[in-house]
């Protein structure tokens, strides 16, 4: 089975995503070298910067200012190897590309792969299913196989070989009538790296209910995130959503109040060093998954906590 890496160099998280993908490859196939690494990049400088993070030499960059899967798909589908395993990065655009390429070329596909294993020339892939309650192990019964990685896999540390010049294929941005407006995607990336995190949810009952959580986050210098219902309700920016559909955070300490801790949310805080949960319902899932749990109304406890932190800080 020949293995290829297809990595997306668009967006602020590209460098970390490339590191996670190379780390995944090295840990899954120690000592092996991928047949080729393809980097999709907005410009040549990004391509050579990211190529420097890839520990192998056969790197080709497809350069196009604005990401558009259609021409890239055309290029990739043209010479897909029938015995190939195509490993895509952990970003959503890569998952979309893997799915489309599978639709075009056939074989098999798995989105959200957290582990891979080759045994007796058979390829097994693991991923979380059932809203992250279960982990499934699949056999890729057909090749080529298009596998996009799960979010939150470990990185390689700071592998930096210095900029290198990959082979470049430059695609023109077609002159379309399409109106394209980019807006900054908020601070999802800063939540990913926050050392301290305060998270709220549906238990807040509305944006006003989040105020004391936001105040706590501000006085701790912590990131502030919310569960899906709170983000969908517009109580906080979408970019502050935590969980499988949002950011996977890994803070040293996470305070989660007014969130049930459903598996899809919990996946976003499960890598926390310590988790404190405050919930009125002793049966809420988070009450069995946190390090310290308080059964109670966070709206009564947090003002006291804020007072203590401020008091202590004023003594510094």
């Amino acid at each position: 089975m020949r293995k290829f890496l297809i990595l997306n160099g668009y967006g602020a998280g590209a460098s970390a995503s490339v590191s996670r993908a190379t780390a995944f490859f090295k840990s899954s196939w120690p000592g092996e070298v991928p047949e080729r690494c393809l980097l999709l990049c907005p410009d040549e400088a990004t391509a050579s910067g990211l190529a420097g993070r890839i520990p192998w030499s056969r790197v080709t960059a497809i350069v196009k200012k604005i990401y558009d899967p259609e021409p890239i798909l055309g290029l990739l589908a043209r010479d897909t190897a029938s015995d190939g395993l195509y490993i895509f990065g952990d970003d959503p655009d890569s998952a979309g590309l893997a799915a489309r390429l599978y639709g075009r070329c056939g074989g098999s596909a798995c989105i959200g792969v957290c582990a891979a294993e080759e045994k007796n020339e058979k390829l097994f892939l693991r991923k979380r299913v059932y809203s992250h309650h279960m982990e499934a192990r699949f056999l890729a019964e057909k090749l080529p196989c298009f596998a996009a990685l799960a979010k939150g896999l470990p990185t390689d540390g700071e592998t930096e070989n210095g900029p290198s010049t990959p082979e470049m294929i430059v695609l023109e941005d077609e002159d379309t009538e399409k109106e394209i407006i980019f807006q900054e995607d908020g601070d999802g990336d800063s939540l990913e790296t926050a050392k301290l995190l305060v998270a709220g949810g549906n238990g807040a009952g509305g944006p006003e209910g989040l105020a004391c959580l936001q105040e706590l986050a501000a006085c701790m210098g912590a990131g502030f995130g919310v569960s899906k219902p709170a983000a969908m309700g517009g109580w906080a920016p979408l970019s502050s959503m935590i969980g499988i559909s949002g950011t996977l955070a890994a803070p040293e300490l996470c305070i989660a109040a007014g969130v049930s801790g459903a598996a899809a949310f919990f996946a976003g805080i499960e890598k926390s060093g310590a988790i404190i949960a405050i919930n009125t319902d002793p049966e809420a899932p988070i009450m069995g998954h946190a390090d310290a749990v308080v059964q109670g109304d966070y709206k009564e406890i947090l003002p006291e906590l804020i007072r203590l932190i401020r008091q202590d800080r004023s003594l510094l």
Binding site: E135, A136, R137, E141, A263, H289, D291
Partner: peptide
Amino acid sequence: TGLGLMDLEPVSLKR
């Protein structure tokens, strides 16, 4: 279908 389900295990989140 291109994938065959071989195994399914609960994810343990206990602390």
